[in-house]
Design a protein around this nucleic acid. Structure first.
Ligand SMILES: [Fe+2]
Ligand SMILES: [Fe+2]
Ligand SMILES: [Fe+2]
Ligand SMILES: [Fe+2]
Lengths: 205, 205
DNA sequence: CTTTAAATTTAGGCATGCCTAAACTTTGCC
DNA sequence: GGCAAAGTTTAGGCATGCCTAAATTTAAAG
């Protein structure tokens, strides 16, 4: 059985990775507010369990197995944060509560909550319900560009990138709530900012 | 700190109490699928902690402190069960997942979720069970208007909007917990407030 | 080579919590 | 008073997991 603390470590390591920071013993320890010695011990254990590769004095790298968990937990954390803050929970509690719930929310429940709370205010009235902002797609999902909701400037930039209606688009990597999205269009992969991505509405397949 | 297992015991004892059954060592043990000896030990501990009154050979009674917790946990359990099953979780998992979440959902979150799904208890007795308030529908779901539960004013306004019995209606977007619903009726999309939507009962397809 | 920061090892601490079988005691009923 | 059922006591098991200070080692930079 995977413990809550293990999830917490993997989440933190994935978070460092996502920001391009090295996952050293100290950086992990700082992230989790524990002493370096504690992190060393824990990282060795996680390596033995196959969640990451640990090289003494060199830091760690997540294995596919560990990355999958870290990524999932972080995603749940963010989904729950948004959920809670949308419900009007005091800001001071949003993070903490999300950090507890992230370990207890089943995958499918997370998915449903996510779908309902991302971009819901952006949808133009009357749009068919399977048309959603690009930012709502999860990694790996595909869609067809339906229309561009933004103004002229945004439209121009997106046209330049080849993001025009009826184009098929696939989300390669979405940080879910912040940071750019990596999308694949017409065989090429490109990164676009969240702000502009939110103006692209796609029909989900 | 109150443990999960403690909550489980208090929940079970409150559940017995609610049904008018005596909370004896054996009945509690049976409820939780443990040996009587385990229950004895645990009940003594809970008594020492002030959650209940324990009289050897006579069973237990919840103190106000214990009753408050047992009642709350059971309520959370039920709210979560309803929530999960409304979201389409497989029946086999609804109970188990609810029994985990009940220990991790903050009070205010439970309250909000409850409000969203309590509408179903407004159902007039004898109504077929697939008739639910409009507010219970999820995005994209369709239904046939069955009847209007509100008073004259509400009825008039809804009639004006074309929301009359036997009309087909589709929920385009429901904010799930607050804000108006977007519905599609006879080919047009319109927004209606939550309050009035709760008086519209529809037969789900 | 020296210095410093990062990392590791060591040795220990702490916090428990819940469960069971088997033998024994009590209660309640006849 | 005898008996069965309910409840209790006893004695033990099991499953750990994570954290830290201080001393030591290693790596990297100059
Ligand atoms: Fe967490
Ligand atoms: Fe978290
Ligand atoms: Fe539970
Ligand atoms: Fe429960």
């Amino acid at each position: 059985m995977i413990t809550e603390r293990t999830e917490e470590y993997l989440e933190a390591i994935y978070y460092l990775y996502e920001r391009g920071e090295a996952a050293t013993t100290t950086s992990v320890a700082k992230e989790l507010k524990v002493a370096p010695a504690s992190a060393t011990q824990m990282l060795k254990k996680l390596a033995k369990q196959g969640y990451l590769k640990y090289v003494p004095y060199r830091g760690v790298t997540l294995t596919p197995k560990g990355e999958k968990i870290g990524k999932k937990v972080l995603r749940k954390h963010r989904v729950m944060e948004k959920f809670l803050s949308n419900l009007g929970l005091p800001k001071s509690r949003v993070h903490k509560d999300a950090c507890e719930l992230e370990h207890h929310i089943p995958d499918d429940l997370e998915r449903v909550i996510h779908q309902r709370f991302e971009g819901e205010r952006l949808l133009p009235p009357g749009a068919p319900s399977n048309v959603v902002p690009l930012t709502s797609l999860l990694d790996g999902q595909k869609g067809i560009v339906s229309f561009i909701g933004g103004g002229r400037g945004a439209s121009q930039r997106l046209t330049d990138l080849g993001l025009t209606p009826r184009t098929e688009i696939k989300v390669v990597k979405s940080a879910l709530f912040r940071g750019p999205l990596m999308v694949s269009v017409r065989g090429t992969t490109l990164a676009i900012g969240r702000g502009i991505a939110a103006t692209v509405f796609v029909r989900v397949k």
